[in-house]
Simulated scan of single mutants.
Amino acid sequence: MSSAQFRAVLLTAFFGAVGAAGAWYVGAPAPYLIGPALVVMLAGLAGLKLAVPNRLRDACFVLVGISMGASVTPDIIGAAKRWPFSFFMVLVMVVVLLYVAAWILQHLFRLDRKTALLASSPGHLSFIISLSADSKADVPAIAIIQSVRVMALTLAVPPILSALDMAAPGFTGPQQMMELPVLAVVLLASVALGLLFTRWNFPAALLLGGLAASALPHVSGFISGQVPYWIMNPVYVVIGSLIGTRFSGVSVSAMRTAFIAGAITTVVVTIMAAACAALVSSVIGVPFNAALIAFAPGGLETMAAMAVIMHVDTTYVGSHHVLRLIFLSFLMPWAMSRLQRNGESKS
Results as ranks from 00 to 15, higher is better:
residue 228 P to I: 13
residue 263 A to Q: 04
residue 237 V to K: 00
residue 258 A to Y: 10
residue 236 Y to E: 10
residue 233 N to F: 14
residue 242 L to S: 10
residue 264 I to E: 00
residue 241 S to G: 09
residue 263 A to C: 06
residue 239 I to L: 15
residue 247 F to L: 06
residue 227 V to Q: 15
residue 239 I to G: 09
residue 237 V to Q: 01
residue 247 F to K: 03
residue 238 V to K: 08
residue 223 I to S: 06
residue 252 V to Y: 02
residue 262 G to R: 08
residue 262 G to F: 12
residue 258 A to N: 13
residue 253 S to N: 03
residue 254 A to Q: 07
residue 229 Y to F: 12
residue 240 G to I: 11
residue 260 I to V: 13
residue 263 A to D: 03
residue 260 I to P: 01
residue 262 G to C: 13
residue 255 M to W: 07
residue 238 V to T: 12
residue 234 P to Q: 07
residue 232 M to I: 13
residue 237 V to H: 00
residue 261 A to K: 04
residue 239 I to F: 12
residue 256 R to A: 13
residue 247 F to E: 03
residue 239 I to Y: 10
residue 235 V to D: 08
residue 234 P to D: 06
residue 237 V to G: 00
residue 237 V to P: 00
residue 251 S to C: 02
residue 227 V to R: 14
residue 230 W to M: 06
residue 242 L to C: 06
residue 240 G to Y: 05
residue 256 R to D: 06
residue 261 A to H: 04
residue 262 G to Q: 11
residue 250 V to N: 00
residue 243 I to G: 01
residue 232 M to V: 09
residue 240 G to L: 06
residue 226 Q to E: 15
residue 232 M to N: 03
residue 236 Y to N: 09
residue 256 R to S: 09
residue 252 V to A: 04
residue 256 R to F: 08
residue 259 F to Q: 06
residue 263 A to K: 02
residue 227 V to D: 15
residue 246 R to N: 02
residue 257 T to A: 09
residue 230 W to S: 07
residue 247 F to A: 02
residue 230 W to E: 06
residue 233 N to A: 14
residue 235 V to R: 06
residue 230 W to F: 10
residue 248 S to N: 01
residue 234 P to E: 11
residue 238 V to Q: 10
residue 255 M to D: 05
residue 233 N to K: 14
residue 226 Q to T: 15
residue 249 G to I: 12
residue 236 Y to C: 09
residue 226 Q to A: 15
residue 237 V to M: 09
residue 239 I to S: 12
residue 252 V to T: 05
residue 258 A to K: 08
residue 227 V to S: 15
residue 238 V to Y: 07
residue 226 Q to P: 12
residue 241 S to N: 08
residue 229 Y to G: 10
residue 225 G to K: 13
residue 234 P to N: 05
residue 251 S to M: 03
residue 235 V to E: 08
residue 223 I to Y: 04
residue 242 L to F: 12
residue 255 M to F: 08
residue 228 P to Q: 12
residue 239 I to R: 07
residue 251 S to N: 02
residue 243 I to S: 05
residue 251 S to Q: 05
residue 236 Y to G: 05
residue 233 N to C: 11
residue 264 I to V: 00
residue 248 S to Q: 04
residue 230 W to V: 11
residue 252 V to Q: 02
residue 243 I to V: 08
residue 240 G to W: 06
residue 260 I to K: 03
residue 254 A to P: 01
residue 240 G to R: 04
residue 254 A to Y: 02
residue 237 V to N: 00
residue 225 G to N: 13
residue 241 S to I: 09
residue 257 T to R: 09
residue 231 I to G: 08
residue 242 L to W: 13
residue 255 M to I: 14
residue 225 G to S: 13
residue 255 M to C: 14
residue 225 G to V: 14
residue 264 I to N: 00
